[in-house]
């Protein structure tokens, strides 16, 4: 069953890669050194990346709300 929410990255991401390291699902990668991107299919919305992110750019999107 898909999680209720998934992570989304804001534009002020510094691409440090902290979130990549803590993601238990390997759902995050850094796109061309510019910004982290989340594979919303893999994301389980656990929030580890949000707690780790020093730039505070990770928010959550409720599945089904804007899809």
């Amino acid at each position: 069953m898909a999680s209720k929410r998934y992570a989304a990255v804001g534009r002020d991401c510094v691409a440090c890669g902290c979130c990549v390291k803590v993601c238990p699902k390997g759902a995050i990668s850094v796109w061309r050194g510019v910004i982290a991107r989340v594979d919303s299919e893999l994301c389980i919305g656990c929030g580890k990346c949000e707690r780790e992110c020093p730039a505070g750019v990770i928010t959550f999107v409720q599945r089904g709300s804007a899809e």
Binding site: A8, W31, V61
Partner: peptide
């Protein structure tokens, strides 16, 4: 698009 998945949240 920066392919960041942020689009769905605005």
């Amino acid at each position: 698009c920066a392919a960041c998945s942020g689009c769905k949240g605005g």
